[in-house]
Nucleic acid binder design. Structure first.
Length: 904
RNA sequence: GAUCUGUUAGCUCAGUUGGUUUAGAGCGCUUGCUUGACAGGCAAGAGGUCAACAGUUCAAAUCUGUUACAGAUCACCA
């Protein structure tokens, strides 16, 4: 067989992926096996693959592929969410390019364009996931706005409304002036920003004249009269000022009780109110009140019955209340108004100031608090249940530290604003009509049903269904994705269907921690509310992928590698390994391309192991004894037999460890252990142990055993590296058409003899000792050495020591051997006669160093054993171990001393 | 500001209910190798008083407290 010495991933990836798809190996249907279900956290339909997706989906694929090989009916359901804000923005842009203004379109016309955009440009990311090897059941690909999911959302809205959990009300909400919609609290990101603190003069209204102003007073005087100074970060909002507030116990302003001041530049007289809300330490201790544009001011406004003056249009420009600034953008207005106030001498001073400003998660626009009518979902009861199932570990978080974050959020939760002033989304199924000049509302899954309800409530009030006016707003995208684990299996519309009963609850949700509230918490609420059962048993929080310097990857920094480019460069297997190896659960990932390179190299290593094994001639004859003169240690069949036994046991041992790692979601550890098992144990040791001399064949029994081991190693590795393992698996043996490693059984751990593994560890150390000796003394690897062993040594592996250490003969001795170089493995002494002159001084130094270490060790052991409390108080087993340590150390010291004496 | 989580080798991290030969891994580093699978490789090696201090204990990287530093979540005062 002639195979290139370099493995080229690009030639196999496409081949096997289409093979898997063609053979329907990713597809799942309910059957009598146990289900293992994962639902993809639906990426944004406008999105393209980034490093976070790579990590997230690699982990999902590993878990799903492993479950499949463990005999579960694994089902990984892919899909996208409709991302109302992001998509609507894309569509508006597309229309603009075509010279169409959204405002000229009807809702239906707009939706037609939006669907057109979605069909053409949406879901690139799902195609990209295929390059990664994702074993999603593509036949089940869903979208949050397809028919099933749409209807599910509407039904849920109606249901919650009827339960009294959804209500409509006028509240201060987070307004995104760019997307022209309200957003929820969770969609606002507070960012530190460098702004200014403006100190403005509010003169006392006519007729207010206070004499006797002391130094301590907050009231100042100039030629124009008496004034107080108010600090603000947003001077443009003075146009909406309807009061100034001071602390009731603030002596600086006590004299102002019941008085009024003039809003600078605006001329409006506003009252001074007194409330403990004010922080006396901040600014001047006097606060301007703009109830229409600040949540705290709004609350004060309600408390004191203040007028609320809305000065902004929806897009953040000033409206007709904005006087000469009407039509200006809020930030342009800030500059303009400051210039005017400056000129009018109404500015006391301006200071640099750093504060946190809320930005829209989607558009990055500065959020404007705005009073408007919105729909809300009551969260208190939902939150209570969602917290319980995490607290009692019905749902386990990995890592568990996220329980704290989760608890804190749920205990301080506010009602969820679920309406969005957008067209792209699920239109709120609320219908309005007028009765006696009052607006009435009915909520129903269809216009006809709504009409029926309206007729019941107010017979004769509505002429026909068409006369009802449907709410213009759409629902928050998360209001559809929170149903995902249920709606994917149509469990909202048909709660008793076979699929939902089979696949729900899902097993593990794999997600980034930054959407713990958007998603995880709300999915748990939905699960409890609509199925009375948790939506998943485990939540695996991945880390955030960062660059080498620890910075978050972002478009603006340009520090994110192109994932598809990485796959082209290192192969999907290599990139998957690179992602996983640096990703212990919940830890951020400092991403470094070189780890993908390590992954690529690993594929290459496996490939070359295949080349080696497949390059051997196989002999059926029994006369396989090695013709070299290595006396009784040269029985190849025997040695190979031992080698196979050892490799089998080593594999069983690592399998056991890996099973444990998977139970605890320690994927990176499981991968590293598999990596070392293949590279170190299998390639560096096992294959070298059984490798026949050049040009000679290998016996059939060993050959077959090796293929079997190789096969199982590939299965172990398959969930991590699907492509290369499939390729190798097919190269190892003939398989029927349609066969695939991905549906083979994962090997299970079997009994292994710990003694034998320990003995082999000692053997390894002896071989390393011989090699080290050659290395440090400049002896050629070709020179055959003899080895005399004093002390314990398992003879079983002597043949292997000979082969891998190039040792001629091994003899057991009862006394030290003069004129040799030596080394120790544990308490066993190894002597190697050499032809060259021994550097006495160097040997002495080495021995003395070892002696010093051993004596230091003994001293630490003696300290424990000399302590009566330890001997009496510690468990017997522990004391016995210390006694053994003492004996070993003493024997080692004695041996070293004897050797030193012999030299000197 | 509140709460939580970290701090172990040059870097990234393990260390599983305190005891297993005075701490492990990967990468990186050093030395030597055209070794008939692989230089995308092979062999050998160096490297840490487990952030600091105090305490509990026969025994502490592991438990407790304080401090320092870092990160996360939430809340924010205009």
């Amino acid at each position: 067989m002639s195979l290139d010495s370099r493995f080229d991933p690009s030639t196999v990836e496409e081949k096997w992926y289409s093979y898997w798809v063609e053979k329907k190996l990713f597809h799942s249907e309910p059957d009598n096996r146990k289900a293992y279900t994962v639902v993809i956290p639906p990426p944004n339909v406008t999105g393209v693959l980034h490093m976070g997706h790579m990590l997230n989906n690699t982990i999902q694929d590993v878990l799903v592929r492993r479950a499949r090989m463990l005999g579960f009916n694994a089902c990984w359901v892919p899909g996208t969410d409709h991302a109302s804000i992001a998509t609507e923005a894309k569509v508006v842009n597309m229309l603009k390019e075509r010279g169409i203004d959204k405002r000229d379109l009807t809702r239906d016309e707009f939706m037609k364009y939006a669907w057109e955009w979605k069909e053409e440009h949406g879901g690139i990311i799902l195609k990209q996931l295929r390059r990664l090897g994702a074993s999603c059941d593509w036949d089940r690909t869903a979208f949050t706005m397809d028919d099933i999911r749409y209807e599910s959302v509407i039904r849920v809205f109606v249901d919650l409304y009827n339960k009294g959990l959804i209500y409509r009300g006028v509240r201060m909400v987070n307004w995104d002036p760019k997307a022209l919609t309200a957003v929820s609290d969770e969609e606002v990101i507070y960012k530190e920003s460098h702004g200014k603190l403006y100190y403005l003069r509010y003169y006392l209204s006519d007729g207010s004249d206070l004499s006797d102003l002391s130094e301590q007073s907050g009231i100042k005087q100039d030629e124009k009269g008496q004034y107080i100074v108010v600090a603000t970060t947003r001077p443009e909002t003075i146009l909406g000022d309807t009061a100034v507030c001071v602390h009731p116990e603030d002596p600086r302003y006590a004299a102002l009780k019941g008085m009024s001041v003039v809003v600078p530049g605006v001329g409006r007289n506003v009252k001074i109110i007194m409330d403990e809300y004010v922080d006396r330490e901040f600014g001047t201790g006097a606060l301007k009140i703009t109830p229409a544009h600040d949540i705290n001011d709004y609350n004060l406004g309600m408390k004191y019955g203040l007028e609320s003056i809305d000065i902004f249009n929806d897009n953040g420009t000033l409206n007709d209340k904005g006087m000469q600034y009407a039509g200006m953008d809020r930030f342009a207005c800030r500059k303009a108004i400051m210039k005017d106030l400056e000129e009018a001498g109404l500015v006391e001073k301006v200071e640099d100031y750093t504060n946190k400003v809320g930005h829209s998660e989607r558009t990055d626009a500065v959020i404007e608090p705005k009073l408007s009518a919105q729909w809300f979902l009551r969260m208190t009861d939902l939150a209570k249940k969602a917290l319980e199932v995490v607290e009692d570990d019905t749902i386990q978080f990995h890592p568990a530290k996220f329980k704290n974050t989760y608890r804190h959020w749920l205990e301080n939760i506010k009602d969820w604003c679920i309406s969005r002033q957008l067209w792209w989304g699920h239109r709120i199924p609320a219908y309005y009509y007028e009765v006696d000049g009052k607006t009435e509302v009915v909520v129903a899954t269809s216009r006809e049903e709504a009409f029926r309800l309206a007729c019941e409530k107010h017979p004769g009030a509505v002429a026909n269904a068409e006369a009802l006016r449907q709410d213009e707003d759409a629902l928050d995208t998360w209001f559809s994705s929170w149903l995902w684990p249920i709606s994917l299996f149509d469990g909202i519309r048909y709660p008793d269907n076979e699929e939902i009963k089979y696949y729900y609850p899902t097993d593990t949700l794999i997600t980034a921690p930054d959407i713990i509230f958007f998603w995880v918490a709300r999915m748990i609420m939905a699960g409890e509310e609509f199925r009375h059962e948790v939506p998943f048993h485990h939540v695996y929080f991945t880390g955030i992928v960062r660059d080498k310097l620890g910075r978050k990857m972002s478009k603006s920094l340009g520090n994110s590698p192109d994932p598809i480019g990485l796959i082209d460069k290192y192969g999907a297997d290599g990139v998957r390994m690179g992602m996983l190896l640096t990703a212990p659960a919940g830890n951020d990932i400092p991403f470094d391309e070189s780890i993908c390179e390590q992954g690529r190299n690993f594929s290459n290593k496996i490939w070359n192991a295949l080349r080696l094994v497949k390059g051997w001639a196989v002999s059926d004859g029994s006369d396989q004894s090695d013709k070299s003169d290595r006396s009784d240690q040269s029985d190849t069949i025997y040695n190979n037999n031992i080698s196979v036994q050892w490799m089998e046991m080593r594999m069983a041992q690592v399998l056991e460890e890996i099973e444990h790692d998977f139970d605890e979601f320690r994927l990176s550890e499981a991968l590293m252990k598999s990596y070392k098992l293949v590279w170190d144990d299998f390639c560096s040791w096992y294959l070298e142990m059984i490798k026949p001399a050049y040009g000679t064949p290998i016996d059939r029994e060993t050959y077959e055993a090796t293929l079997g081991i190789f096969d199982r190693l590939m299965r172990m590795l398959h969930p991590f590296m699907p492509f290369v393992t499939e390729e190798i698996w097919h190269a190892l043996a003939e398989h029927p058409e349609g066969a695939s490693i991905m549906v083979q059984h994962m090997p299970h751990s079997v009994f292994y003899d710990q003694r034998m593994l320990d003995d082999f560890e000692m053997t390894r150390e002896i071989i390393a000792g011989v090699r080290n000796l050659r290395n440090s003394k400049g002896l050629s690897p070709k020179e055959v050495l003899d080895l005399y062993i004093k002390g314990n040594c398992p003879a079983m592996f002597n043949g292997i020591i000979c082969k891998l250490g190039n040792v001629g003969k091994i003899e057991s001795v009862s006394d030290k051997v003069e004129g040799t170089l030596s080394f120790m493995v544990g308490t066993t002494e190894c002597f190697v006669p050499v032809s060259l002159n021994i550097d006495k001084e160097a040997e002495l130094k080495k021995l003395n160093d070892e002696l010093k270490y051993a004596e230091g060790f003994l001293a630490s052991v003696m300290k424990k054993l000399g302590n009566e409390k330890f001997v009496n108080g510690a468990p017997e087993k522990v004391v016995a171990v210390e006694r053994q340590k003492k004996a070993d150390a003493e024997s080692k010291i004695a041996a070293l001393k004897a050797q030193i004496e012999a030299l000197g």
